[in-house]
């Protein structure tokens, strides 16, 4: 049994010890962030069923509200849907014609078909951003084959990339996170740029060619690089201020529900070894100090830059 004095000393030492432990955790977070995030991912994995239970009432209420809103405005909604259906039927015909033409052209060009990427579909378990980051956790079930760097898309466009992988859950860093840098191509000007997230709804465009500024409203697509394939829709260019082009994402980053994670592989774009490359012979140290071996040639004028004066 401890004495009263010892107990008093112990009681006074508890808080400083705990503060030291907290400082240790801060330092661990700065040095080994992935290990801390791994623990957080495990906790989320464990809590995933509870999260589904927690948001279930909210989802039901949303469905009821949508039904209610639809029921109150049936005639107008019907008319709108009929118009939309007509427009979609037109676009369907255009798409079928274009697909047939595309197939013919590819056949005549002996186009090598691209590999179909593997994908898994997951529901957003939780918004995992915090004040300074934009990320979501996806419940992709057990037995998935998702790898770090895989590409996440919603129904409309690019969403982000996978940064951590757990047994049931994966973490996707969204394109508007401050740490996100995605190489993109601009649709009409064909310039390359980097799309940099800045924690706002619209990521910025940086490092674009100074003689080809992005054009307001032009399409932005991904540029093929390692696991990121070319041509994925990202969004459209918008100038939020003069000389400040941003991308308005196609994906609805605020209301995410179902997300697909694609594995495009990372070893397809490796350049082959250059065949026939020969080693360059080393030149002698001072090849031009002696007299030229071609004595039969007439005197050549001094070459510019040879210091003949």
């Amino acid at each position: 049994m401890l004495s009263i004095h010892a107990r008093q000393v112990l009681a006074k030492a508890v808080l400083p010890i705990l503060i030291l432990l907290a400082v240790g955790l801060v330092l661990l977070g700065l040095v080994r962030r992935p290990s801390v995030d791994g623990v957080r991912l495990m906790a989320t994995d464990f809590m995933a069923p509870a999260y589904h239970g927690l948001v279930w009432p909210q989802e039901r209420v949303k469905v009821w509200l949508t039904d209610l809103r639809g029921a109150t405005d049936l005639a107008k909604e019907n008319a709108r849907l009929r118009d939309e259906n007509r427009a979609l039927r037109h676009w369907y015909d255009v798409a079928v014609a274009l697909a047939a033409e595309n197939g013919r052209l590819k056949k005549s060009l002996h186009w090598i078909p691209e590999t179909v990427p593997q994908y898994v579909t997951g529901r957003v378990t939780r918004d995992d951003g915090g004040p300074y980051s934009r990320a979501v956790l996806l419940d992709v079930g057990s037995g998935h084959d998702v790898r770090i760097g895989d590409v996440a898309l919603d129904a409309a466009g690019l969403l982000g990339r996978v940064t951590e992988v757990g047994p049931h859950t994966v973490r996707v860093l969204m394109i508007n996170d401050d740490a996100s840098r995605i190489p993109v191509t601009l649709g009409s000007s064909h310039g390359d740029a980097i799309m940099a997230g800045d924690d706002t709804a619209s990521p910025r465009l940086i490092f674009y060619p100074q003689d080809h500024h992005p054009v307001e409203g032009e399409r932005v697509e991904t540029r093929g690089q390692s696991t990121m394939p070319a041509g994925l829709p990202v969004g459209t260019v918008h100038y939020s201020a003069p000389n400040r082009p941003v991308v308005v994402p196609d994906a609805d980053l605020d209301r995410l529900d179902i997300v697909r994670v694609f594995d495009y592989g990372d070893d397809d774009s490796q350049a082959p070894d250059a065949p026939g490359r020969v080693r360059v012979k080393k030149l002698p140290q001072n090849p031009l100090t002696g007299p030229l071996p071609f004595s039969w040639l007439p005197n050549l004028p001094d070459m510019p830059g040879r210091g003949g004066q």
Binding site: A22, L25, V26, G29, D37
Partner: peptide, 23 residues
């Protein structure tokens, strides 16, 4: 800390400091 994804340790340290001050 486990159920948030901010920089690790900051919430914990802030809570302990504010506890120390209030106590």
């Amino acid at each position: 800390e486990i159920f948030s994804f901010g920089p690790p340790g900051t919430v914990l340290l802030s809570l302990l400091v504010i506890y120390g001050v209030a106590h």
